[in-house]
């Protein structure tokens, strides 16, 4: 399968197979005007199978959200068809505006303008809790 390489943009690589659409939706890529390629189930020596997303534009990427969904991801930044930066993401300590607290007793349930902030409280089990009410994400 052949997908054109991009000139200026971002490649989100090493996505766990099956996670590409979740990233696409959560990061709001459906609202972008530029070309986007979602490549699923690509063969990978390291991972067996992986997903890749190629975005033909230098848009800002929410690294916190990416790290939360899939901490093994790498991000390649392409300028004039040259790889100029390669970043890996880790499980973020805090998540801003990524998740919404589901606790109906939380202050964020009635004050919608408050920023939704979640904090990593248990790295081993990937547990995030709402900063305001401490409810589990």
């Amino acid at each position: 399968m052949h997908i054109d390489s991009i000139k200026d943009g971002i490649v989100i690589d090493h996505i766990t197979a099956g996670n590409a659409m979740r990233i696409y939706n959560l990061l709001g890529f459906d609202k972008l005007e530029c070309s986007i390629a979602i490549i699923k189930n690509v063969g990978s020596k390291k991972m067996g199978k992986k997903d890749i997303i190629k975005i033909d534009s230098n848009i800002p990427i929410n690294l916190e959200a990416l790290g939360y969904i899939d901490p093994g991801i790498t991000i390649d930044v392409i300028r004039d068809s040259v790889l100029v930066d390669k970043r890996s993401v880790d499980l973020p300590q805090t998540l801003h505006g990524v998740l919404k607290c589901k606790n109906p007793r939380c202050i964020t349930s009635c004050e919608q303008e408050l920023e939704q902030i979640f904090t990593l409280t248990d790295k081993e089990n990937r547990v995030y809790r709402c900063m305001y009410c401490e409810a589990k994400a």
């Binding site: 007793r105 202050i107 349930s109 009635c110 709402c130 401490e134």
Partner: peptide, 26 residues
């Protein structure tokens, strides 16, 4: 406050000390 986390929000905007006197079941 009946809503959990409200005193924390208050402390984030306050120039004086805030004491949580009970926020919901929290």
């Amino acid at each position: 406050h009946p809503k959990e986390g409200a005193p924390l929000v208050a402390s984030m905007h306050s120039t004086v000390p805030v004491i949580n006197a009970g926020d919901g079941g929290h």
